[in-house]
């Protein structure tokens, strides 16, 4: 008995040593910064001098800051791309699941934008959206359409970025959907065929419910990622676009904190963003749970 407990103690010590790094990392680079952020958000501070405690003033200021809300609105706008991208990639995955020629090559082609460096892609698309010499308008000109000067237009800058985001993300969702579709038992489709179901009915009643977990995963992760969109905005529209029409929340936070050295206010907005993301994610999980009960 004594021996066994000594052995256990040795095991505890080793186990502790093995998890020490992530635990320490968590304390140093997550927990402590969160505490520090909570305090910073209640101060007025330029990052260097003394911090002046101002209570909740930063949060009050945030509610009246039209640029903050505008950047929030822009961020939400970009998420239009999520359902469009999901619908397109599900269609692609269904197509890829057929015995079509050059299948693996096509799959690779669709995946290339996913692995490509976002910075390089943003640079490419910024130039591609150039009003006179960009690829997009030169292509549209073939059909006699005169494209706008995309990124300089308050009306077109955001849609332009959404199109780019869909283009870049399509392959990723497609791969996940393809995996999900391939794991659907064939017998389900065969049974449905015996019952005389047509293609659309099979899609509605078998494919769509069977890929639901993937849809959920993609929606949750893409909403989380989408609420933190920054790189594309920073590169394609370095000033936040015409009349700040492309600035995202993280862009606005970054600008306040690192361009105008308004660290306290920037942190308050960053915390607000973190809370919003958390709430949205929890709501999604909740809805998902409720709907799957209906399904059963």
């Amino acid at each position: 008995m004594a021996r066994s407990s000594r052995l256990h103690q040795a095991e505890h010590r080793w186990a502790l040593a093995f998890v020490a790094a992530p635990v320490l990392g968590y304390v140093l680079f997550t927990a402590y910064p969160v505490g520090f952020a909570l305090y910073t958000s209640m101060t007025q501070w330029n990052g260097l001098g003394a911090m002046r405690f101002i209570g909740l003033d930063n949060y009050v200021r945030l509610f009246g800051d039209q640029y903050f809300w505008q950047s929030m609105g822009n961020t939400v706008f970009y998420m239009i791309g999520i359902p469009i991208g999901l619908a397109l990639s599900l269609a692609l995955a269904i197509g890829m699941n057929r015995a079509i020629p050059l299948r693996s090559m096509l799959r690779t082609v669709y995946y290339v934008p996913v692995i490509s460096s976002l910075a390089a892609i943003a640079i490419l698309w910024q130039w591609a959206y150039n009003g006179d010499f960009g690829l997009v308008n030169q292509f549209l000109a073939w059909f006699g359409i005169e494209g706008p000067n995309w990124l300089a237009s308050t009306a077109w800058a955001k849609p332009a970025i959404v199109i780019m985001l869909i283009w870049k993300g399509l392959g990723y969702s497609m791969i996940l959907y393809l995996a999900a579709i391939q794991s659907v038992p064939r017998s389900l489709y065969e049974a449905a065929e015996l019952d005389g179901a047509n293609g659309w009915q099979k899609f509605r009643t078998i494919t769509l419910p069977m890929v639901r977990p993937v849809t959920f995963f993609l929606v949750v992760t893409q909403v989380i990622a989408g609420s933190q969109i920054f790189t594309e905005i920073n590169i394609m529209t370095p000033t936040g676009g015409p009349e700040y029409s492309t600035a995202s929340s993280v862009f606005h936070i970054w600008r306040q904190a690192f361009r105008y050295q308004d660290m306290g206010y920037g942190t308050a907005m960053a915390i607000m963003l973190g809370i919003l993301i958390l709430i949205i994610t929890l709501v999604q999980f909740r809805l998902n749970q409720r709907n799957s009960f209906v399904l059963d």
């Binding site: 186990a15 635990v23 609420s227 920037g266 963003l273």
Partner: peptide
């Protein structure tokens, strides 16, 4: 491995994912 509070440690670490980088970037 046997470790007291193993699951608590794991769940604790997982809470870290819920905090987005933009929230941490200024204090870091």
């Amino acid at each position: 491995l046997r470790l007291p509070g193993r699951n608590a440690i794991f769940v604790g670490l997982l809470t870290g994912i819920m905090i987005p980088f933009p929230t941490l970037m200024i204090p870091q």
